[in-house]
Structure formats: structure tokens, C-alpha cells
């Protein structure tokens, strides 16, 4: 078994007295494509928020390649190699598609303090940005104002922005939310293709069980403030506890 890239130990978090997580533990091996599922309100996005530094955990460690990142500032964590795409589209609306990616490419190589050289003349950045846009299939929309893109394309741009950081680990929060069925599968193929091509670790949150069981190597179920179950899609789909947890929600 390969080395764990992310290891979470004894993670706990409460908001205004109500506990969201109690002693969460799990480890993700390097290079895995896995998913997190769980009923509504189980705290899937909160988990991402804790990993990426948006929230500070009350207790516990988040070890990323051996470094405890719990409580670090988001920009610091990004610098170590964790990028995320958001559930609600989260881009820079009045900038072009290209600029969205360019600004991230510049940030990734820490070039933001270049005060005088025009960013438009930096050919390497442009090549890199176009390469990423090609990867997600947005290259032909490079000069569009990103806020005017269709929803599905905005989500893909969000992923492109995350990719531009050259992360070692990518967190995707419901990459297919709000998409039509065809678009969904298109995006899933895209995610899977990127994973195969870039060989990075990916962790995604998803509601659509067909997608979850279709592409994940491993599935973790977040429920009752902790990881309820962990296993291959097959194991999870026949896990009695998980089925009950989901049934409990639907009744």
C-alpha cells in the first residue's frame, strides 16, 4: 500500500455548541481517486473547509505529507499542494476565462509581486494557461468574460483554476451539481481523464450514487459526526449500516 498523502487523526469541530465532527480518522493513499458521501448536513463540505483552512479544527491533526496543516491559513495550505473546486461556482466573474487561469498560474509560481512587467506578455504563463484550458475543454472560450459562461462551463473553469495550482491533491466539492444528466457524465469523464493523465490524488463529494460507484476506487461515508464506513464501492453498497443511514434520511 502506498504512503498516505493525507492523514486525518482525531478531528473534532463544533459550531456554536453543536458538534459537527467527533473524532474523525481516515487516511488517503497517494494517487487515489476516492469519494465522500453522506446524508445532507453530514458535514461533507465542512470537512473540505477544515482541510483547506477555511475553518480551524477544535481538536485533531490533519497531516498532509507529514505536515500538520490544521489551523493554517488557506493560502499556505494551497502552497503546500492542496487545491479545491467549489460546490457553488466560485470564479472571478468580471475577468476573462484566460485571466482566471492566468492569475492562478502566476500565483502558483509566486509571481504576484512583479509590479511592472505586463502579465500579458509572459508567454510561458500563457502556454501553461492554454494547456490547462485545453485539458478541461474551455480553450475556445478563453477570451469570454467568465461570468457570462453557462453554469456547466463555469464549474469546469472552477476545476481549471484549481488545476492551475499544480496540486498534489485536488478536492472537488460536487463537481456535477446543477448539471443536466449528459453534462454530468461529460464532467465525470473529464475528472476521470484528468486523474489518469495528471496522476494526482483526487477526493470528491458527490450525491449521484451512480457516479460515486462508477469512478471511485474507494468510498468513505460521513455520518453521525464521523466516518461511518470506508471501502470499495462494492463493499459500501452492501454495507447494512450505510443503507440504514441513508434510509433514515429518506423516511
Amino acid at each position: 500500500m502506498p504512503e498516505a498523502i493525507l492523514k486525518i487523526e482525531g478531528l473534532s469541530k463544533s459550531f456554536e455548541g453543536s458538534q459537527v465532527f467527533n473524532d474523525v480518522n481516515f487516511a488517503i493513499p497517494e494517487g487515489e481517486l476516492s469519494s465522500i458521501i453522506g446524508p445532507n448536513g453530514a458535514g461533507k463540505t465542512t470537512l473540505f473547509n477544515l482541510i483547506t483552512g477555511y475553518h480551524v479544527p477544535d481538536k485533531g491533526k490533519i497531516l498532509f505529507r507529514g505536515t500538520n496543516i490544521a489551523g493554517m491559513q488557506p493560502f499556505h495550505i494551497v502552497g503546500l499542494g492542496i487545491a479545491r473546486a467549489f460546490q457553488r461556482t466560485n470564479i472571478f466573474p468580471r475577468m476573462t476565462v484566460l485571466e482566471n487561469v492566468l492569475t492562478t498560474v502566476i500565483s502558483a509560481r509566486k509571481g504576484n509581486l512583479s509590479l511592472f512587467a505586463p502579465f500579458r506578455n509572459h508567454d510561458k504563463d500563457h502556454e501553461r494557461a492554454y494547456e490547462i484550458l485545453e485539458n478541461v475543454g474551455l480553450a475556445d472560450m478563453a477570451s469570454r468574460e467568465s461570468g457570462t459562461l453557462a453554469h456547466g462551463n463555469q464549474k469546469r473553469l472552477d476545476i481549471a483554476v484549481a488545476l492551475a495550482l499544480e496540486p498534489k491533491m485536488l478536492l472537488l466539492d460536487e463537481p456535477t451539481a446543477g448539471m443536466s444528466p449528459e453534462e454530468r457524465w461529460h464532467t465525470v469523464e473529464l475528472v476521470k481523464g484528468l486523474w489518469e493523465k495528471l496522476k494526482i490524488t483526487m477526493l470528491f463529494i458527490e450525491h449521484d450514487m451512480d457516479i460515486v460507484f462508477g469512478i471511485s476506487q474507494k468510498v468513505r461515508v460521513l455520518c453521525y459526526k464521523t466516518i461511518l464506513a470506508e471501502g470499495t464501492p462494492k463493499e459500501i453498497s452492501s454495507n447494512q449500516q450505510v443503507i440504514e443511514a441513508y434510509l433514515g434520511e429518506e423516511v
Partner: peptide, 14 residues
């Protein structure tokens, strides 16, 4: 027009 300027606009936007 510099990378810094782009960064500043990026922050303004989101």
C-alpha cells in the same frame, strides 16, 4: 497591467 495588478483585480473579484 502587471501580475500585481492582475492579482489585485483577482482579489477584488472574489
Amino acid at each position: 497591467n502587471s501580475s500585481f495588478g492582475l492579482t489585485i483585480r483577482t482579489i477584488r473579484e472574489n
